[in-house]
């Protein structure tokens, strides 16, 4: 019996050693800019969401919200899910999520204003609630904020341990005239994110998203 116990422990240790890293849970919050003509870019966002659905696993969380005139609201969350521990349920959850996103994109209407700060703040709260090991906010926007008169957004956003990734920051017509506008926009957001304790990234090439999510 001693021999067998020894053998068993050796096998367990060996197998344990092969898989020593604990898998980290991820939480991803994606903000979709629905202002003006940016709604035309949403088919790209749909592909990104599909990619996220294919990549995220049990225990991970995903939420997709729109950026509209006042984004600091639960109502702007299009769909959110924390994937179940059972693989079969996860597949069903992903299907339901995909359907809701497809419906949203097919029926989305442009908003008059763009409250990115509110959306990021809402995302930050959601991500902190999930207590995931890795928290990511994907901002699918041109980063040009246009607030409703009276809305206060010039404060530091708490983004400790959160990666904020700006996706598909399209160059506006004015950016081509003076590229400093674009650079200033990006720099301003980088500063705000860093001030809040977060990490800022810009990914215009969506192929690199794979590295971000898988890494």
């Amino acid at each position: 019996m001693k021999r067998f116990a020894l053998l068993l422990s050796v096998v367990v240790i060996m197998l344990g050693g092969c898989n020593a890293e604990k898998p980290k849970t991820k939480s991803v919050y994606m903000l979709l800019d629905t202002s003006g003509t940016y709604t035309k870019e949403l088919d790209k966002a749909q592909k990104i969401i599909n990619y996220l659905l294919a990549t995220l696993n049990s225990g991970d969380s995903l939420a997709v919200a729109r950026i509209d005139s006042g984004s600091f609201s639960e109502k702007d969350i299009v769909s959110k899910v924390t994937f179940d521990t059972r693989p079969s349920v996860v597949s069903d959850q992903k299907r339901v999520f995909k359907r809701s996103i497809d419906n949203f994109i097919s029926s989305v209407k442009s908003s008059s204003y763009t409250d990115i700060t509110g959306g990021v703040l809402q995302a930050s709260e959601f991500l902190n609630e999930t207590r995931a090991d890795e928290k990511i906010i994907l901002v699918f926007s041109d980063l040009k904020e246009d607030l409703v008169k009276g809305h206060v957004r010039d404060f530091s956003i708490p983004l400790v341990d959160i990666k904020v990734v700006a996706l598909n920051v399209t160059k506006l017509r004015s950016d081509n005239v003076d590229p400093r506008h674009y650079l200033n926009r990006v720099a301003k957001w980088q500063e705000r994110v860093n001030q809040g304790g977060g990490k800022w990234l810009v990914l215009n090439d969506l192929e690199r998203l794979e590295r971000l999510i898988a890494g």
Binding site: L15, N19, K22, S58, T85, S88
Partner: peptide, 13 residues
């Protein structure tokens, strides 16, 4: 993982 869950850990495994 369908029976005992896909996320719970027992030590490093």
């Amino acid at each position: 993982s369908e029976m005992v869950g896909g996320t719970s850990q027992l030590g490093p495994m």
